[in-house]
């Protein structure tokens, strides 16, 4: 189980690197979308690992809210570039 989590952290490092080196804002947004999904899945895994119900609930809420916030942010950034 530990090694699965470490493999997940390695997968998480790829979009972080991408967000660091790329200069286009939409590529950064893509990296952020990837990171948001990955972190919430990792939270779910940890909640199952520790058999902690409250962490699982928070993970699902963050999964929902992170995606919703991302859509909001995408629309705002689109407005910035328009005018």
């Amino acid at each position: 189980m530990d090694s699965i989590l470490i493999a997940m952290i390695l997968a998480l490092l790829i979009p972080i690197y991408e967000a660091w080196q790329d200069d286009d804002i939409w590529q950064k947004m893509l990296a952020f979308a990837s990171i948001a999904t990955k972190t919430s899945i990792m939270m779910l895994v940890i909640s199952v690992l520790r058999d902690d119900w409250s962490i699982g609930v928070v993970a699902v809420i963050i999964l929902c809210v992170g995606n919703a916030g991302l859509m909001l942010l995408a629309h705002l950034i689109k407005r910035i570039n328009e005018t």
């Binding site: 939409w26 947004m29 893509l30 979308a33 999904t37 699902v60 999964l63 929902c64 995606n67 919703a68 991302l70 859509m71 995408a74 629309h75 950034i77 689109k78």
Partner: peptide, 18 residues
Amino acid sequence: ITLAIWNTVLGYVIAYCS
């Protein structure tokens, strides 16, 4: 269910905005 719905919508929104 959240993943299936939100990630699909999110992909569409980002594509539309970019």
